[in-house]
Every structure is written in C-alpha cells, then in structure tokens.
C-alpha cells in the first residue's frame, strides 16, 4: 500500500496585483496532479524552475492548503482526519530543505534544534531527549560533541546532516527532500546522497526527492515524475524513464542534462524559447509552443495523463498507441 497518495492535487495562487493594473491573475502553480509514494521507496520530481515542485512539497507538508484534490496518507484522506490523526500525520511526514544555512535557527544549540520536533510532539524526560539526540547524531555520522555547539560552527554538509537528524527525530515514514544537495559543494554532495540512501535502507523511509540535477534524481529515485508548468507530463520507473524518455519535454530535458564524460556524445534536442508564465499557460498541451513534434491537435486539446506501455505520459503523440 502506498504511504501517500495525491489525487487531483491543485494549488492556485492569487497573483499580486500590479501597481496600476486592476486585473487579478491566477498562478496555476500545481494543476490537477496525481501521484503515489510507496513505502520504503523514493519518488523523484524533476522539472524546470517554477514548474511547481516546491509547491507540491509544501502541499504534502501541510504548509499550503490545496485549492483542490486530496491527499491520502496510509489510506486515509487528510481532510477527514480527526485531531489525533492529524498529529500522527504531522509526526510521520518531515522535511529537509535546500539551504543548510537557513534551515537551522541560528540562535539555538544543535541539541535543541534536533530535539525540537520531539519535545513539541511528545512528553519525554530530558534524559530521554538527550539520549535520542546523541543517537540521531550518531545516525547521521556526527560526533557527540556537536550537540552543544551552535549552527555557525558547522560547514554546509555538516549542517545538512543536522537537518536530516532533526527530520528523523520523530521516526517519520516520509521525508520530503527539496533540493537537499543543491547548495552543497560538489565534493560533499555524494556524502549526503549516500547518507540518505543508507538511512532509507535502514529505516525503511519513503522519500519525496526534488532536485534540478537529473543524474542525482535518477540515482536516488525508484520512480520519477516529470513536471512542466504545474502539470505532470510523464511518470515512470526511474531507470527506464531516464534511458528512454517518451514525452518530448522529458526527452529534451534529459538530452540537456550534462554528459558525465567528454566522449559521451548524445543527440541534442535544443528547445526554442523559454518556459511560459504560469499566469496564462498556453492552451491545449502546455508544452506545445516549444515542442519539436507539435501537431495541430496539441494547441486545441489538452492531453490526458494515460498509460503508454510501462509508464504514464500526457502527450497526443501516443493517442494511437493507447487504442
């Protein structure tokens, strides 16, 4: 059974009014997306800046209220949970964010930072708290001495370890990782990715992993979701999707990923133009103004996300294949 299922999840923001224009637009940050995260597995989310990845993460974390759609956690709809159920959900879903320098309260000791979720949600004695903090520090590979220091005494990679320790304090089921290594040095990233993988194997965690680095997502994820302008355009098994993308956008995105070796020569699909504004997305398929394989139907009719072979694709190219 999936840990978390989202169905038709939608979030619209009221765009701020310009200084003189009286019009009020709607930013369709996340528009009717559905996905599910299996227990002990990683769902990777990729897409260009502004396509709604962080908004999705916030919806899952309850930091934003969805405009529409539902989230089911362990089979139960979040909307219908009683307060106890909500508390349980809160404890089961934790997060690690991108900037390790902004994620830790600068004026709190490491032990207090790590213990905060614990003290807030459970009645525990200070001895137990201390023991748990040391256990968590050990889990993320930091020395015990760290407990009494302040965040500014740590490097970026170490801070990210602290952020991970804190996220694990309540033994969550799902951890949302929003670009957890983007802000780290190249030589440090592998340390954190390895740590996250080890923790998953050991604790059976599920991850919602968001990143710009396609190779890192392919490496970390079991399933990948590709988003474009608030919509899911393709979902599939990480390895097969990375190797043989079906949607034209996925193909362009993965062909734009940088090679890992100078001799690796790939076919390059250069997209024309830039990502349109989510304030007024193009009609029909949102990708059609940039799509190299665009057809007349694309501008008129929005393609539905439907099964194509081993995965789901939202593209008119596969209309025949389905029938």
């Amino acid at each position: 059974m999936p840990v978390l299922e989202a169905a038709g999840l939608t979030k619209h923001f009221q765009a701020r009014r310009g200084l003189f224009s009286g019009s009020r637009g709607v930013v369709r940050a996340v528009d009717d997306i559905s996905f599910s995260i299996e227990s002990g597995r990683t769902l990777g989310v990729v897409g260009e800046s502004g396509c709604g990845k962080t908004t999705t993460a916030k919806l899952v974390l309850g930091l934003e209220e969805p405009t529409g759609g539902s989230i089911r956690f362990e089979g139960r709809d979040l909307q219908e949970l009683d307060p106890a159920g909500r508390r349980h959900y809160r404890k089961s879903v934790q997060a690690v964010f991108q900037d390790p320098f902004a994620s830790l309260s600068p004026r709190m000791r490491i032990s207090d930072i790590i213990a905060e979720p614990l003290v807030t949600n459970e009645t525990v004695t200070s001895g137990e708290v201390r023991r748990r903090v040391l256990e968590l520090l050990d889990l993320v590979g930091l020395p015990e001495r760290s407990a009494d220091l302040f965040p500014h005494e740590f490097s970026g990679g170490q801070r990210q370890r602290i952020a991970i320790a804190r996220a694990l304090a309540l033994s969550p089921k799902l951890v949302v990782l929003d670009e957890p290594v983007s802000a780290l040095d190249v030589s440090i990233r592998a340390q954190i990715l390895n740590l996250l993988r080890d923790l998953q194997d050991r604790l059976g965690l599920s991850y919602l992993f968001i990143a710009h680095d396609l190779a890192a997502v392919a490496h970390m994820s079991h399933t990948i979701v590709v988003m474009y302008l608030g919509k899911i355009v393709e979902v599939g098994d990480a390895q097969t999707l990375a190797r043989a993308p079906k949607h034209p956008y996925t193909a362009a995105l993965f062909s734009a990923a940088l090679p890992s070796h100078p001799d690796e020569r790939r076919e390059e699909i250069l997209l024309a133009g830039e990502v349109p504004s989510p304030l007024n997305p193009p009609s029909g398929c949102r990708f059609h103004p940039r799509c190299p394989q665009v057809m007349p139907v694309c501008g008129q009719q929005e393609p539905a996300l439907a099964q194509v072979g081993d995965r789901f694709v939202a593209c008119h190219l596969y209309d025949q294949a389905r029938h």
């Binding site: 809160r90 997060a95 905060e116 949600n121």
Partner: peptide, 9 residues
C-alpha cells in the same frame, strides 16, 4: 528554519 518548525508541529 521557521518552515521546518511548522513541519515539526
């Protein structure tokens, strides 16, 4: 860190 505090409950 404020966002994480909200997540922490």
């Amino acid at each position: 860190f404020v966002r994480l505090a909200i997540v922490a409950g």
